[in-house]
Amino acid sequence: MSLRTAALSLARAATRSPFSTTMASSSKTPLEDTIREKITTALQPSTLEIHNDSHLHAHHAAMAGSTSRETHFRLVITSPAFRAHRGQPARHRLVYGLLRDEMAREGGIHALQLRTMTPEEEEARREAAEGAK
């Protein structure tokens, strides 16, 4: 990728809101839409941030030949459903399980970064951050 196209894709990424909820039939973000739909249905999250970091990885060797703009995602999920899942591996497996098809198929999600919290943990985190100020 040339510097010019890199800058262009960066500019595009900067204008895309991670909270966009438009569900047009010809969506430019079909994977993001699917992620939002599946996680919202299954986990009833109080916070759901979906960050598309694909542009940061577009030049990686593993992405050679890929035309998808939806390969790398970073999710922040706060859900009461995580109360029943102590330990990060169990929570991550839960989310991976919801997106199993999207991760397994060719041209689907290549990388998925997760931060999973219960509402209580999110609150504690916020208080700790406040206290540190």
Partner: peptide, 12 residues
């Protein structure tokens, strides 16, 4: 014993 992937390693 399985510990986790990159996110878990970094957060731990």
């Amino acid at each position: 014993e399985f510990v986790g992937g990159c996110d878990i390693i970094v957060s731990m």
